[in-house]
């Protein structure tokens, strides 16, 4: 059974079927990418899986447990973490504190202990700091640790969000356009980071516009168009699928190998 499984998922906005009857699965260590033209419903799909929207139809399961419509914090407790297409950084905190906050589920304890700064409370914070420092080094932000998060560049903030999501030690990580707005070097760094995380056994669900990156790192690709799944499979198979090519380029005779 896959770690994350999505069946017949759908949601409507007004009269519009934003996403309809989408299903797929993600295994531990696998990188599954969701691609599709603008407005295909990729981020909406992400928002349903991660608890930001409540789906109108269908089912999401994590490790066999039905988690459809659960709040984001309940999903986090079950090991699901995500990043955002439009950054959601804790702007007024330091870079290090952002990642330490990502460790909330392991760092939290009794409120009274936190109010009186008991040794247990200080230990929890010290542990979070150690883990967070390690993660900042991993995404190459260790030297910015004490800066206010709002002072970082866009590419750095993207990596900060990934570090924050990893601090949770997720079993499944949803990455919404992690390389958007990044230059070629940054994209490659993020690319390596994602492959690395997947190798450690984390299941990864990715939305990304950078087709080169998608084709290079994905184990499996799901293609959406107008809210429906139109193709699914290995990168080389999907990139030759006529329906996929049509969705991306419109109907064209003999357009051949358009992606990848």
């Amino acid at each position: 059974m896959p770690l994350l499984s999505v069946e017949g998922l759908g949601i409507d906005f007004g009269g519009l079927r934003a996403v309809n009857d989408v299903g797929f699965g993600v295994e531990p260590g696998e990188i599954v990418s969701v691609i599709g033209p603008n407005g295909a419903g990729k981020t909406t799909l992400f928002n349903m899986i991660s608890g930001a929207y409540r789906p109108a139809r269908g089912k999401v399961s994590l490790d066999g447990e039905a988690v459809t419509g659960m709040a984001p914090n309940q999903l986090a407790e079950r090991g699901l973490s995500r990043t955002f297409q439009n950054l959601q950084i804790f702007q007024k905190m330091s870079v290090l504190e952002n990642v330490m906050t990502g460790r909330h589920l392991k760092a939290r304890g009794s409120l009274v202990a936190d109010l009186f700064s008991t040794p247990a409370s200080r230990r929890r914070t010290a542990e979070a700091r150690t883990v967070a420092s390690g993660l900042l080094a991993r995404v190459g932000l260790d030297r910015a640790a004490d800066q206010q998060a709002s002072s970082l560049s866009y590419g750095a903030l993207k990596r900060l969000e990934i570090a924050r999501a990893l601090a949770l030690e997720p079993r499944i990580l949803l990455l919404d356009e992690p390389a958007a707005g990044c230059n070629a070097v940054e994209t490659e760094e993020i690319d390596h980071l994602i492959a690395d995380v997947a190798k450690s056994g984390v299941a990864i669900l990715l939305v990304e516009h950078d087709m080169k990156m998608v084709m290079r790192i994905s184990s499996h690709i799901v293609v959406l168009d107008r809210g429906e799944k139109i193709a699914e499979g290995k990168p080389e198979k999907v990139s030759r699928d006529p329906k996929v090519i049509e969705a991306y380029l419109g109907v064209q005779e003999g357009s051949g190998h358009a992606l990848g």
């Binding site: 950084i89 804790f90 906050t101 909330h104 949770l168």
Partner: peptide, 15 residues
């Protein structure tokens, strides 16, 4: 302080 800046991101990290 996290939920002050972004409630959705705070929820995502388990708050």
């Amino acid at each position: 302080r996290a939920l002050h800046d972004s409630e959705i991101a705070a929820g995502t990290v388990g708050v």
